[in-house]
């Protein structure tokens, strides 16, 4: 398909040259297609970057869900499996991942990198589903109002994991594995039923009197 060819050519160019092509014209010329063909699929190069990242995420979810044990996992394990699979994929594409992250990261560090926009949307849907399942099984406490913010909270965790991976200098990124393990355990301890729920319950009881 023409779209995949353009995406692949763009990826190859970025990997070889270390920066995006100077213009859409140059890339399409190299490919031997008309420039207008490009715009039928993408408005600009950034859109390709966003799509590549979204592909990483989708691939990670699909591969993780293909494991025979997937159905036996709870929400915590499903999220872990997603992260580990994603890291495997990123390991194979680390050069591109670092390059594209860095390009959009350093401008405004507090915000999420723009290349992750599509990735983020899918991720938040995925997490919302996990959380809903978790609430059914009782793994996650039901906290009306507060829980609407969970997907954003987990997105910060995903950013932390990506940032940790980008900076990890251990062999085979072993520390990232440990970081994922601990971050996810902590987050599920927080969203699971814990002291906070009992405290809120207690306060509500006192106030209602």
């Amino acid at each position: 398909m023409e779209k995949d060819r353009i995406k692949q050519a763009y990826l190859d160019f970025v990997l070889n040259e270390g920066h995006p092509p100077q213009s859409v014209f140059k890339l399409t010329q190299q490919l031997g297609v008309a420039e207008s063909e490009f715009y039928q699929h993408y408005p600009n190069f950034e859109a390709i970057d966003r799509e590549i990242w979204a592909d990483f995420g989708r691939q990670a979810r699909e591969t993780a869900a293909a494991e025979p044990v997937w159905d036996g996992y709870g929400s915590r394990e499903k999220l872990l499996a997603f992260y580990y699979t994603l890291l495997e994929i990123l390991k194979n594409n680390r050069s591109y991942a670092l390059m594209s992250l860095r390009r959009s990261l350093h401008r405004i560090p507090a915000l999420s990198p723009r290349v992750l926009d599509d990735f983020r949307q899918d991720f938040e849907y995925f997490v919302s589903d996990l959380l809903r399942d978790g609430r059914v099984t009782g793994e996650i406490a039901n906290r009306p109002l507060v829980q609407d913010g969970y997907p954003r909270f987990f997105w910060q965790q995903a950013l932390f994991v990506l940032g940790y991976f980008a900076k990890d200098d251990t062999v085979n990124f072993e520390r990232t594995d440990a970081a994922v393990e601990k971050a996810v355990t902590l987050s599920f301890d927080l969203v699971g039923r814990n002291t906070i729920d009992s405290a809120v319950d207690f306060v509500r009881f006192l106030v209602r009197k």
């Binding site: 993780a64 494991e67 025979p68 996992y73 394990e77 872990l80 499996a81 580990y84 393990e181």
Partner: peptide, 30 residues
């Protein structure tokens, strides 16, 4: 140290053998 999560064990196997423990062995307790 708390036990490793199932997914991390699977990942350790994938790193080492390119296969999950469930593919490698006939039976594997997660």
């Amino acid at each position: 140290t708390p036990p490793l999560s199932g997914p991390l064990v699977v990942k350790a196997f994938r790193d080492a053998f390119g296969k999950s423990p469930f593919q490698l062995f006939d039976e594997f307790e997660p």
